[in-house]
């Protein structure tokens, strides 16, 4: 009989269509998840789609300058260990990693998405483009947040399905969004991570309660924060290419992924928007949304 090297703490969580088991050698990251995911289903006896493990980077690293190594069903061989102080971020990154590398039931787009009037706005772009902050802000102002990281495109219906994990706010976006949100919906400030200062936002209660409800996509935007206001048309060929680059499982899904993505590109109007501030971005989104076909 093999005894586990360390006692583990764990939590089961359902987010959208996926159930995660997160196991940690330390109590603190699980406590943080317990608090921030309090409103999410916690199916104790379900079979998890993915397991995320937060393990000490070395035998002594559980106590001595504790460092976390993220692993699980799918892992990256060269992932750098993280400080225990960033344990919550490690858990979130672990869940992202499992989805990105292992999910096959939907076409997965690296995009944020929000819903209003029964239709979905999808926003995609590089890290720093503002898609996550814009989705978080819209989610506080009359839109339902479906997700800030992955849009899940149903292979049969073409609907976008919610995956409302905690929203990861970075640097300047932290203060902007925190000003509008009660403190109990904000996670701890994680200083000095690889992406700067990060604070997590718990989506609104309606986004969590309705996380099984998808809706058809009605608009795609390529946002770019920090530039003078501009709206540009984008050809379907470029849209298709950018979305294949934004998908982690397009190739793995084969023809089903091709069908889902070509249908999306052929039917969903799209444009690129530049905006100098969050307020300007939201105003542009509302205006374009009102003018959609």
């Amino acid at each position: 009989m093999t005894l586990p090297l360390f006692q583990t703490h764990q939590i089961m969580l359902t987010i959208g269509p996926a159930t995660f088991r997160i196991a940690s050698a330390w109590r603190a990251p699980i406590d943080a998840l317990e608090r921030l995911y309090a409103a999410y289903p916690r199916p104790a006896d379900a079979v998890a789609d993915f397991t995320v493990r937060l393990e000490p980077a070395g035998r002594l690293r559980r106590w001595l300058r504790p460092s976390i190594f993220i692993t699980g069903d799918h892992g990256l061989a060269d992932a750098a260990p993280m400080s225990l102080a960033h344990g919550l971020l490690a858990a979130e990154m672990g869940m992202n990693l499992q989805m990105a590398l292992g999910w096959r039931r939907h076409l997965l787009l690296h995009a944020s998405s929000v819903e209003k009037d029964g239709q979905v706005l999808v926003m995609t772009g590089e890290s720093g483009s503002g898609k996550s902050t814009l989705a978080a802000q819209l989610g506080e102002r009359g839109w339902r947040l479906l997700g800030d990281e992955f849009a899940l495109l149903d292979l049969v219906t073409g609907h976008v399905m919610p995956f409302p994990r905690l929203v990861s706010l970075k640097n300047r976006a932290v203060d902007v969004v925190a000003a509008d949100v009660p403190a109990e919906r904000m996670g701890p400030m994680l200083m000095g991570t690889a992406k700067g200062n990060i604070r997590h936002l718990v989506p609104r209660a309606d986004a969590v309660a309705r996380m099984g409800e998808g809706a058809p996509p009605a608009m795609l935007l390529f946002p770019r924060f920090g530039h003078e206001t501009d709206v540009r048309a984008v050809g379907q060929g470029e849209i298709f290419m950018r979305l294949t680059q934004a998908s982690t499982n397009y190739v793995a899904l084969g023809e089903a992924g091709f069908d889902a993505l070509t249908r999306f590109v052929a039917t969903v109007p799209a444009c690129a928007i530049d905006f100098p501030s969050g307020e300007a971005g939201m105003a542009m989104v509302e205006q374009l949304w009102a003018q959609r076909g």
């Binding site: 379907q236 060929g237 298709f240 294949t244 023809e255 091709f258 069908d259 070509t262 590109v265 052929a266």
Partner: peptide, 22 residues
């Protein structure tokens, strides 16, 4: 082959290889 014209390109999905060609 699955052929899907978009507005400015044509997409070809090649079933034997699983490759998409623009």
């Amino acid at each position: 082959l699955v052929v899907r014209p978009l507005d400015d390109i044509v997409l070809l999905y090649h079933r034997p290889s699983g490759q998409t060609h623009m």
